[in-house]
């Protein structure tokens, strides 16, 4: 390439083209034109090449976030199952505990009744006020009470062991929930990366927004009452609010 690169065509080249055309040498004139275009084309090609590479890199990087599709198709359905497992486990535990407690109530009530039944005679005995016939009857009642108490306390003990064992869900559900928290963290990161790839700054998006609420403002348990001023913290707050309304 012999042209002076101040412009895209030199005076010399232009003159040659005119000469070739005047002398009817079309092919030679075309050859010069092609030679002139060549550097323009190569710059264009270089630019297109650069853009193509950038596009390719962007796409490849974006595919790095194919993790996102794994998350959506595998991890999140798995997490749903895990959370359902937590519901089942906690429900089972609550029911097992209540089974035991509901079984203990009548046992304790019966013992209390039997104690209450011997109490008047016992008080009379302590006051030296009991005749022999009553004393014999009291002895029989106390005998029954002692036997029953011995038997029933064993029963209560085993039911209380059931209550104790029903708490084993805490360890298992704790592990499951910790795993789901990790997944939520990962999804959050992937989504922020995606926003960044689309040129949306995460900071701009991270405005202080309140969680989505359902019909009638339904939101469920509030876990961060101390950071919010639109919720009550406890029953006292509810009572204060209601009494301020004239309740």
């Amino acid at each position: 390439m012999t042209i002076a690169m101040t412009g895209q065509i030199s005076l010399e080249q232009a003159k040659s083209v005119v000469e070739f055309l005047e002398s009817g040498q079309q092919a030679a004139a075309d050859a010069i034109i092609a030679e002139i275009q060549n550097p323009i084309n190569s710059e264009l090609f270089a630019e297109i090449g650069k853009l193509t590479r950038q596009l390719h890199d962007s796409l490849t990087n974006f595919q790095l976030d194919s993790r996102l599709s794994d998350l959506a198709t595998a991890d999140i359905p798995d997490a749903k199952e895990r959370l359902n497992y937590v519901i089942t486990m906690t429900e089972d535990a609550a029911n097992k505990t209540m089974d035991a407690v509901e079984a203990i109530f009548p046992v304790v009530d019966t013992l209390a009744e039997q104690v209450a039944a011997v109490n008047p005679s016992w008080t009379k005995l302590m006051n030296n006020d009991l005749d022999l016939k009553e004393f014999k009857s009291l002895c029989l009642d106390i005998d029954t009470l002692l036997k029953n108490t011995g038997k029933e306390t064993q029963h209560i003990h085993s039911l209380m062991t059931d209550v104790l064992m029903a708490q084993d869900f805490q360890d298992l559900t704790g592990q499951v929930i910790r795993k789901v928290i990790e997944l939520v963290r990962e999804v959050e990161e992937s989504l922020i990366n995606m926003l960044t790839a689309f040129g949306i700054s995460a900071e701009k998006v991270q405005g202080k927004t309140t969680p989505k609420v359902g019909e009638n403002l339904v939101e469920g348990p509030i876990v961060n009452t101390e950071n919010r001023d639109d919720v009550v913290e406890d029953q006292d707050d509810v009572d204060d609010l209601l009494s301020s309304l004239g309740f």
Binding site: I222, V231, L242, L245
Partner: peptide
């Protein structure tokens, strides 16, 4: 209920509720 927004408590009062207990609650409450 676990619903604890002031606006909701007002809503319930206006609807004619007789008492409002927030979960978690106690037997004494």
């Amino acid at each position: 209920t676990a619903e604890a927004k002031k606006e909701q408590i007002v809503m319930a009062a206006q609807a004619g509720v007789n008492g409002y207990i927030v979960k978690p609650f106690t037997a004494a409450t």
